[in-house]
Amino acid sequence: MPGRNPRPDEAIFAAAKAGIPADPAQLGESAAFRAGFTAFDAGYFWEAHELWEPVWMQAPPASRARRLLQGLIQLANAGLKLRMSRPDAARKALARADYAIGECFRSDSAAVLGLTHQDVASLRAAIYAL
């Protein structure tokens, strides 16, 4: 938890981050992308953000994948802010997540990086369960 615990050793994330493919079509298969969900599901929101950010950086600008990843990162940010007892900051992060995810699926309902809008909605619902 930022400000409460020491920052984890970057080596923990190194293997997953090193395997991010250059081909945007394969980003959803990367170890970092998948590990982000494992961290998120376990309530390790900061770690999920750390894993998803380099995948986001590899996604083409203005692509649906980049918008989806922005939304996922903001969902993780919202979960972290709730854990830190910062509900106003969590609401702002959720608004940013909703915007990015909405933009991702606004004109095309096809899955992005293997995720549908419903899959992402389930992740968002998990934040409210905190």
Score class of each variant (00 low, 15 high):
A32G: 04
E53V: 03
R124A: 03
L72S: 04
H117N: 10
F40A: 11
L82N: 01
A121K: 07
A110G: 14
G28N: 11
A25Y: 07
L130Q: 08
E50A: 04
A78C: 00
P54V: 08
A25N: 09
D9A: 12
P61A: 11
A11C: 09
A100Y: 13
M84R: 02
A110I: 05
A100Q: 14
F40T: 03
R66Q: 15
P54Q: 08
L68Q: 10
L72A: 03
L69M: 10
A110Y: 07
E29A: 14
A90Y: 02
Q118K: 08
A32S: 13
Q26K: 12
A62F: 12
L72E: 07
I73D: 04
L80P: 03
E50I: 01
E50T: 07
A35S: 14
Y99M: 09
S107V: 06
R83Y: 05
D88I: 00
G28H: 13
A126L: 08
A97K: 06
L82F: 00
A76V: 10
K81S: 03
Q58W: 01
I127D: 04
L27S: 06
W46M: 07
D23F: 07
A100C: 11
S107Y: 12
Q70P: 07
Q70M: 12
A93Y: 04
P2L: 12
E103R: 15
F105C: 01
Y128H: 14
P2S: 13
P8R: 15
R96T: 08
Q118M: 03
Q118W: 05
A95V: 00
S109C: 05
K81L: 02
G19N: 14
I73S: 02
A59M: 03
A121Q: 09
D9Q: 13
E53F: 02
I101V: 15
A31N: 09
C104E: 03
A90D: 00
A31Q: 11
L130S: 06
D41K: 15
P87V: 01
A11K: 14
G28Y: 11
A25D: 14
A59G: 05
L75N: 03
A15S: 12
K17S: 06
P60R: 08
I101R: 05
A39C: 08
A42H: 12
G71R: 03
M1E: 13
S30P: 01
S109M: 11
S30I: 02
E53G: 05
